[in-house]
């Protein structure tokens, strides 16, 4: 099971690990609207980063630039030693190494759960169908819904769909997982089952960037919290520092609104 789900707990302490994502002076405009302003962020292997911030602060846009779902105009992004450029080849390489989970699940409604998960491994990683399906089944087991393999997404609850979406992203065996508000579209009673899966994933040593409003998750799981506001990183630090001892005014304002 270890081979498909966990990267293996990294022995080296966080400070000495290699940087797997390096973003320097990232700038993005939508027309005249400056959505990302000189964003700098370096993520180490196995680090779990939770990105907080008011809506419209650019946090979703930021993680979507990392796998080139959004373009950027200035700055540099290096993912797993590959520089993100307009070159389609580089983009595809980076996407192979980064899994993404969306707010609205975005499962493929015309395919069974098993096909949803095994599609990319078969056609991008070029695995044999049997191998891909075997791994898909193992992943479904890990996210706790092995019995749903032959159903269609429409037949599953929101929480189950999101767990399938996580399994689908993991099937490509990415080095990095991006989560774009994974629990925001869920009914309250289903949030926990998805967060639990994410927690296990974090414990297994996966590098994760999570945009969320789940403060409990942020406090418990994150190695580092990044606070976005108006397209900039306002404050960054360990969860206990950010939550208990915020330095910046805007951080205080944001935290006072949600807690």
């Amino acid at each position: 099971m270890k081979s498909v789900f966990s990267v293996g707990k990294l022995e080296t302490p966080l400070e000495k690990r290699e940087e797997i994502i390096k973003v320097t002076k990232l700038n993005k405009w939508y027309g005249d609207h400056h959505v990302l302003k000189d964003v700098d962020l370096a993520v180490k292997q196995g680090e779990v980063i939770v990105i907080l911030g008011p809506s419209g602060s650019g946090k979703s846009t930021f993680i979507r630039t990392i796998n080139a779902l959004e373009e950027f105009q200035k700055g540099e992004i290096i993912v797993d030693k590959i520089a993100l450029t307009d070159d389609l080849k580089n983009i595809e390489e980076i996407r192979k190494e980064t899994g993404m989970v969306f707010q609205s699940f975005n499962l493929f409604p015309h395919m069974t759960i098993l096909k949803n998960i095994s599609l990319a491994p078969i056609w991008v990683r070029k695995w044999k169908k049997a191998k891909a399906e075997q791994i898909a089944k193992e992943l479904l087991e890990r996210v706790g819904i092995p019995e749903q393999a032959d159903k269609y997404p429409g037949q599953l609850s929101g929480g189950q769909q999101q767990r399938v979406a996580i399994a689908r992203a993991l099937a490509m065996q990415p080095k990095i997982m991006l989560f774009d508000e994974p629990t925001s579209a869920l009914d309250p009673e289903m949030v926990k089952e998805v967060l639990d899966v994410m927690k296990t994933l974090a414990e297994s040593g996966m590098t994760m960037l999570v945009v969320t409003h789940e403060m409990g998750f942020a406090r418990q799981v994150a190695d580092r919290i990044v606070l976005f506001d108006k397209g900039e990183i306002v404050e960054m630090g360990k969860p206990e520092d950010i939550f208990d001892n915020p330095k910046h005014e805007r951080t205080k304002a944001f935290l006072s609104q949600i807690i």
Partner: peptide, 27 residues
């Protein structure tokens, strides 16, 4: 077809042709 379907397929590393053939056109 919603933009999310394109994005999900692209995020998995499928190239434009495969996104069309496997995900978008069937729907």
């Amino acid at each position: 077809i919603s933009q999310g379907q394109f994005e999900a397929a692209q995020a998995l590393g499928l190239n434009n042709i495969k996104v069309m053939v496997f995900v978008i056109l069937p729907q």
